[in-house]
Design a protein around this nucleic acid. Structure first.
Length: 567
DNA sequence: GCCGTTTTCGGCCCGACTGTTTTCAGTCG
């Protein structure tokens, strides 16, 4: 049972307890634990009760429940609650406007158990009779039920969101009343994909700024609009929340609106422990504002240093800050080279020379040409003869294009049994070997772990490419024992890749952190198939920063001469 | 259910918007 599954069960318990009217703080304890589990960088399944209790927010009772859940795959409390709150009822939480209190009323007064029952009742006009329900809410529920029959909204890739933010911000800047604007929320935290967009603006005339947003051409629906806050849904289904505050509150509002929610809660608890109040308008002692204009000031007044948005997930960054141990995060400028790229020799769309010129233009000192190996027939993967032939072309290009070093590399397939797709004597003559899984991505965890560890043990392999194989919104990550893989990688001095393609971003942020803790080096790579794609390195850097990665953790921050050192 | 430079009991983060009310509960972020 992995951390995601543990989190799901705990979350469901929280929801069911809330619907049955349990003490809200007990509910919150389960929600907190679920969130902690979801973000925890190593498997809770491998931890004993004492270790679990060391984690903030998990006490004796929850540690006990988690170990039971891991051992038996089930929890008596979860089963018992499902008898009281059937799954159909639980699912009603997805409907906008329905929370625990109203769901309880629906179940108690109208005996509603699921969507079907709710739909019938709403169509008959039966909801209006319930206290707190009226004409509008009934209509809203019917509409939500009809819309949810359509596909559920996927999260938008960060790269797509970045383009949208650019056009939205350009649109907003046409408003003269706008003083400052910043995309906050999970976008500013540089998450790999975002569920909505939170835009923060400063203005003394908020009404005008709201009106400007409502003129944005892609708006499908307005969910709500008040003096300081407007929510709209764009035609693609993405929700945009705009918040407008006075300029002197911008820093506090940015902290508040950047989140994460858990990070914000933690900050407000610190404020409270100092007898202060923290909200989106500032940090206050009684009526007196202590800080509000900029983020640095707000953190300082709480006794903290400014924390990079990528770290604000309440994964220990506040404690690290208090101990003066915040990481000095890697930036794009720290990268000297790129170690994964393709050319027209396989599935790339540009020649080696075009790629070399583009890499040089992107400010890189070196890059590796790592085309696919023979097994990937559809890409015309390289056999030993073509590997040698390509080496001659690389040498020729290197003579023509100065100012950048070109490494002779390969992205060799890891076969089903963990052997590699090219013989060792061929790999041994190359400068850089990426080994990747491209087939049978869904094999069971034990077999996949063996397969990847076997590749790591091959001394010719420098790095494992896109280790999990996931494609965001399209393909689940392969299952394997990350700890076992990290242990082998550490022993062999084999690195793991952070693939920067916007739909891969693989390793994930938490896996980066786990690798760092295990002493495994990373490589941030573009996996470019086109000259413009060296720009995606920015996205891989985002992901690495979210994983607390510093320049020294990443091999391609080194000058070429030091690249061969494996640790 | 968790937690402790006020505490092992009694607290637990904060505010905007909507719809239903006629001062506020519920939901949401």
């Amino acid at each position: 049972m992995d951390n995601q599954e543990i989190a799901r069960v705990l979350d469901e318990i929280g929801d069911m307890l809330e619907i049955t009217g349990e003490n809200f703080f007990r509910v919150r304890a389960y929600r907190n634990a679920a969130r902690t589990a979801k973000d925890y960088p190593s498997p809770l399944a491998g931890m004993d009760k004492e270790a679990l209790q060391e984690i903030p927010g998990i006490g004796a009772d929850l540690a006990d429940k988690i170990t039971t859940l891991v051992a038996t795959g089930d929890l008596e409390m979860h089963r018992d609650l499902l008898k009281k709150v059937p799954r159909g009822l639980l699912d009603l939480r997805q409907i906008h406007g329905l929370g625990p209190k109203r769901i309880k009323l629906l179940a108690d007064l109208l005996k509603i158990q699921d969507r079907e029952g709710l739909k019938r009742a709403a169509e008959q006009g039966a909801l209006k009779g319930i206290p707190g329900f009226g004409e509008k809410l009934e209509g809203q529920i019917l509409k939500a039920l009809a819309e949810q029959a359509a596909a559920p909204a996927a999260r938008m890739l960060y790269a797509d969101a970045a383009r949208l933010v650019e056009s939205l911000v350009a649109h907003m800047r046409k408003c003269r009343a706008l003083e400052l604007i910043e995309a906050a929320g999970s976008f500013r935290r540089r998450r790999d994909a975002v569920g909505d967009l939170d835009i923060l603006a400063a203005s003394s005339k908020p009404r005008l700024v709201m009106e400007q947003l409502l003129k944005f051409p892609q708006i499908k629906e307005t969910l709500g609009s008040g003096e300081t806050k407007t929510s709209v849904v764009l035609s693609g289904g993405l929700q945009v929340d705009l918040r407008v505050v006075a300029r002197q509150s911008f820093g506090a509002a940015l902290v508040y609106f950047t989140g994460s929610k858990a990070h914000g809660v933690h900050l407000r608890r610190i404020a409270q422990s100092k007898g202060l109040l923290l909200n989106e308008y500032g940090l206050f002692r009684g009526e007196k504002p202590l800080a509000s204009e900029d983020e640095e000031g707000v953190y300082r007044a709480l006794g903290l240093q400014w924390i990079a948005p990528e770290l604000r997930e309440d994964r220990g960054e506040i404690e690290a800050d208090q101990a003066h141990r915040l990481p000095k995060l890697i930036t794009r400028d720290d990268l000297r080279g790129d170690l994964h790229s393709h050319s027209t020799w396989t599935d790339g769309r540009a020649s080696i020379e075009e790629m070399a010129r583009a890499a040089k233009k992107a400010g890189l000192e070196y890059f590796a040409v790592t085309d696919h190996s023979q097994r990937l027939r559809m890409t015309h993967g390289l056999d030993p003869a073509r590997v040698r032939e390509q080496a001659r072309e690389i040498a020729a290009v290197a003579r023509r294009v100065g100012g950048i070093e070109i490494l002779r590399g390969i992205e060799v397939d890891i076969l089903d049994d963990g052997k590699l797709d090219l013989p060792d004597d061929v790999l041994g003559h190359l400068d850089w070997v990426v080994a990747s899984v491209h087939s049978k991505l869904d094999m069971d965890a034990k077999a996949m772990t063996r397969r990847m560890v076997a590749a790591i043990r091959n001394p010719n392999v420098n790095v494992i490419g896109h280790p999990s194989g996931r494609l965001i919104n399209q393909r689940a990550p392969s299952s394997f024992d990350l700890d076992a893989i990290l242990k082998a990688a550490r022993e062999e001095g084999c690195a793991l890749e952070v693939n920067s393609q916007p739909d891969r971003l693989d390793l994930t942020d938490t896996a980066c952190l786990a690798a760092k803790h295990a002493g495994v080096k990373l490589v941030v790579s573009s996996d470019s198939h086109h000259p413009t794609q060296f720009a995606v390195l920015e996205f891989g850097i985002n992901q690495a920063r979210r994983g607390w990665i510093e320049p020294a953790d990443v091999l391609n921050t080194r000058p070429l001469a030091k690249l061969a050192e494996r640790r």
